[in-house]
Amino acid sequence: MRILDLVKPKDLARVNKLQLLAKQVVEGFCSGRHRSPHKGFSVEFKEHRTYVRGDELRNIDWKAFGKSDRLYIREYEEETNLRCTLLVDRSGSMQYAGQRSEGRTKYQYAQQLAAALSYLMLGQQDGVGLVTFDDQPRDWLPSRSRPSHLRAILQSIAEDGSKRETDLGGVFQKIAPKLSRRGLLVILSDAMGDVESLARAFALFRSARHEILFFQILDPDEIDFPFSGRIQFRDLERSTNEQMVDAKAIRDAYMQRYRDHVDQLKEVCRKQRVDLVQMTTDRPFADALHEYLSVRRRGR
């Protein structure tokens, strides 16, 4: 099956563009840090053993022979591939784009970040899976480490977001039983929802010994609420919900509510040992990848 069979040309172009972007980001990010990104972390030296007949000559450590005048065989320990599952929020709230993010919605930012991470992880021969969701799990790609799996992932995340509500806790509790094998869960969401149910979902993930990396993607407008005057706010998730407010008058209260929400989320993440990375849509992807790699190093 070719990728064109799965996606429309327009979408494919978007996928290619996304792939190219991911490649540029990842390779640009990794250059200078590793001699070859393909060497990766999966092949590691373990010990020397005495050469016996039948061993392949290419495994002889000639340097050790030069030093000790004995033949040793270098033995390597090959790691199990990392199983990473990307959980991408495509609910209505992710469709917001403020002026400072140059028209890029939070979902678009999540798409690009997911693509970059997938590309990076597949390049390291780790397995990458994908789950997109709003108030229900919408698309599910199991974790695969084949390079060709990238296209499937890209094709899935290239789909438009929905206008539905967010229910992170409910969705994650539904997903958790299906992620039976231990792995890395990378959540890409704005976390606009009930933090209590989210905490319970994290607990489920943690009980399955999953490692969780939570990229909270926000628009700068949601952080500092720079509006003034009379504004009618229409909910991106529920078209019937409208609020006519004097933005300047409620700004203090909103900021307080936002801080409370973030504090509550941080507290939940701290308790569940979830790595929370707050990203704004005006922030470069490199920062997000840096966060990911940092987490990975800590995990090793």
Binding site: G92, S93, M94, Q95, Y96, K106, T166, D190, M192, G193, D219, E222, F227, G229, R230, I231, Q232, F233, R234, D235, L236, E237, R238, N241, Q243, M244, V245, I250, A253, Y254, R257, Y258, H261
Partner: peptide, 17 residues
């Protein structure tokens, strides 16, 4: 006279309002 804005973080705004 007011401005209409599609807003995502209505979860936070609702409680405030």
């Amino acid at each position: 006279r007011f401005q209409v804005m599609e807003w995502g973080a209505m979860h936070l705004l609702e409680a405030v309002v």
